[in-house]
Computed example of a mutant assay.
Amino acid sequence: MAPLGILVAVLLLPVAAVMGHFPVTLTLERAIPASHKVELSQLIARDRVRHGRLLQSAAGVVDFSVEGTYDPFVVGLYYTKVQLGSPPREFHVQIDTGSDVLWVSCSSCNGCPGTSGLQIQLNFFDPSSSSTASLVRCSDQRCSLGLNTADSGCSSESNQCSYTFQYGDGSGTSGYYVADFLHLDTILQGSLTTNSTAQIMFGCSTMQTGDLTKSDRAVDGIFGFGQQSMSVISQLSSQGLTPRVFSHCLKGDSNGGGILVLGEIVEPNIVYSPLVPSQPHYNLNLQSISVNGQTLSIDPSAFSTSSNKGTIVDTGTTLAYLTEAAYDPLINAVGFGEQSFDFLNSTLYSLSKIEV
């Protein structure tokens, strides 16, 4: 074990020596002088910063700040901020792994809330105010990507690529597609941050219905993190800008927030679960449920479905949903009343209801 405050280094053979030249001597200095006393808490903090650098992907990651909590009485959703257009404007968008398209409220939107109970400033995207914005026409190859999802259309009169989305809670939105710059913060080697831009195709919402019209938890739009070709992840990956992977951790405490990056976080303690292949959503094969280390007595057939689609991991769903055969044993094990309610809402994932 090295003494406190001493820089430990691994000696690497210089490239010059391999090429036949004299080796280069590098002088190492103490990061903390030997005469300087440092509190143990400070050293631990330094190590955590260093470990954070080591855990990040060598190729760098695109970082997004995460706000919101699981608590439906406070927020009931997680959201982040994106910057779109030139000059860039900031939009708060809900993080949703259950849908594929990024869309924001557009100017002259019908039903779009003007204020938010989340104490955030709502903005409206105006393509005419961005010097780099362009409408996606029917003849644009990117329009065919949306048409393949059966949620998009093309108006021969306006020659605009349009969309209509209906969500599971009955809310909906419609509008048209715009191509413009998304501004990204890329973190390299844990500390170096570079600003970059990428042209993406996203939705400009001109109409909203259902819960999307309510102001209490209103945001500017939805950030679809699905795996289809219209998602921002797929678009950036097709341009060779980011890997086709994202890392997402939701904090289940009262403070909320979390981590959201485009790119892979390398953490040796992560437990991986394979996804069910050939599904439009992120589906897992749920096999059992344990409480306090004890596996509950649940018939495995409670987790099966007729089409073997498994259980959906959906950050856009506030609560966890289970079939009755799995739900009752879980509630009995946890206890009734407020305790069981808090337990279900503190899960890191939101599980959609399994149709059997």
Results as ranks from 00 to 15, higher is better:
residue 336 F to P: 02
residue 342 D to F: 14
residue 324 E to N: 14
residue 334 V to N: 02
residue 309 K to Q: 13
residue 274 P to V: 04
residue 294 Q to H: 07
residue 335 G to D: 01
residue 293 G to Y: 07
residue 344 L to I: 10
residue 285 N to A: 14
residue 319 L to I: 13
residue 279 Q to R: 13
residue 341 F to M: 08
residue 335 G to K: 02
residue 284 L to C: 02
residue 278 S to H: 11
residue 315 T to M: 02
residue 320 A to Q: 00
residue 331 I to A: 11
residue 273 S to A: 10
residue 268 P to G: 13
residue 267 E to A: 08
residue 289 I to P: 09
residue 309 K to L: 06
residue 332 N to R: 13
residue 323 T to H: 01
residue 327 Y to G: 00
residue 304 S to A: 11
residue 281 H to T: 09
residue 283 N to T: 08
residue 332 N to V: 06
residue 281 H to M: 08
residue 307 S to I: 09
residue 293 G to F: 09
residue 325 A to G: 05
residue 334 V to W: 00
residue 283 N to L: 12
residue 328 D to C: 04
residue 315 T to S: 15
residue 278 S to A: 10
residue 309 K to S: 05
residue 266 V to A: 05
residue 273 S to C: 07
residue 330 L to Y: 04
residue 324 E to F: 12
residue 282 Y to C: 09
residue 275 L to R: 10
residue 306 S to E: 13
residue 344 L to T: 11
residue 269 N to L: 15
residue 302 A to G: 02
residue 297 S to R: 08
residue 321 Y to Q: 07
residue 335 G to V: 09
residue 290 S to R: 00
residue 342 D to A: 05
residue 295 T to F: 05
residue 297 S to A: 15
residue 272 Y to A: 06
residue 326 A to Q: 09
residue 316 G to H: 01
residue 297 S to L: 10
residue 344 L to F: 15
residue 274 P to D: 10
residue 331 I to F: 10
residue 344 L to C: 11
residue 279 Q to C: 03
residue 274 P to A: 07
residue 294 Q to I: 11
residue 320 A to Y: 03
residue 342 D to H: 11
residue 327 Y to V: 06
residue 291 V to Q: 14
residue 333 A to M: 11
residue 319 L to V: 08
residue 301 S to A: 13
residue 272 Y to V: 05
residue 314 D to E: 02
residue 277 P to Q: 06
residue 287 Q to E: 15
residue 318 T to F: 05
residue 324 E to L: 15
residue 321 Y to W: 10
residue 340 S to V: 12
residue 339 Q to I: 15
residue 293 G to C: 13
residue 287 Q to G: 02
residue 344 L to Q: 13
residue 305 T to G: 13
residue 290 S to A: 15
residue 306 S to A: 14
residue 290 S to L: 06
residue 315 T to P: 02
residue 314 D to I: 05
residue 300 P to V: 03
residue 293 G to P: 09
residue 304 S to W: 04
residue 336 F to M: 02
residue 328 D to P: 04
residue 303 F to C: 00
residue 301 S to D: 15
residue 313 V to R: 03
residue 273 S to I: 08
residue 281 H to N: 09
residue 298 I to S: 12
residue 337 G to N: 00
residue 305 T to L: 11
residue 266 V to E: 06
residue 321 Y to H: 14
residue 273 S to G: 08
residue 279 Q to P: 04
residue 313 V to W: 03
residue 273 S to F: 07
residue 324 E to G: 00
residue 328 D to E: 12
residue 333 A to Q: 11
residue 282 Y to T: 09
residue 281 H to F: 14
residue 275 L to D: 05
residue 288 S to H: 04
residue 319 L to E: 06
residue 339 Q to F: 08
residue 297 S to E: 10
residue 311 T to K: 01
residue 312 I to P: 04
residue 326 A to M: 07
residue 288 S to D: 02
residue 311 T to C: 02
residue 276 V to T: 13
residue 301 S to H: 06
residue 291 V to T: 12
residue 324 E to P: 08
residue 322 L to N: 01
residue 300 P to S: 01
residue 303 F to H: 00
residue 341 F to H: 04
residue 302 A to R: 01
residue 281 H to A: 13
residue 342 D to P: 05
residue 292 N to F: 11
residue 319 L to Y: 08
residue 326 A to R: 05
residue 299 D to M: 07
residue 329 P to M: 12
residue 272 Y to F: 10
residue 271 V to C: 02
residue 275 L to P: 09
residue 287 Q to V: 14
